[in-house]
Amino acid sequence: MKARRLYNRIAALRVERGISRKELAEQIGVNFQTVGYLERQEYNPSLDLAFRISEYFGFPVEFIFSITVMKPMSEELYQQNSE
């Protein structure tokens, strides 16, 4: 069975927090290369890792991960403000 591609906001959130891949990797307990794979959406994390990432950033899993292409956060924020 082919796994669906999971889209995520890890790169945007990490840059926003001003932390390196290595620092994030240490916090979520993976190799820093794995963070690169996650950010490029070349690797789908396990449920446990997805929860660890969401706990670290303090956002729900569905905010960070999606099965559809995610809009940039700035675009979503603009839409919410204009509604």
Binding site: K2, A3, R4, R5, E42, Y43
Partner: peptide, 9 residues
């Protein structure tokens, strides 16, 4: 070259 066994679409 680092590609994972699970083929992502």
């Amino acid at each position: 070259a680092g590609k994972l066994p699970e083929d992502t679409e």
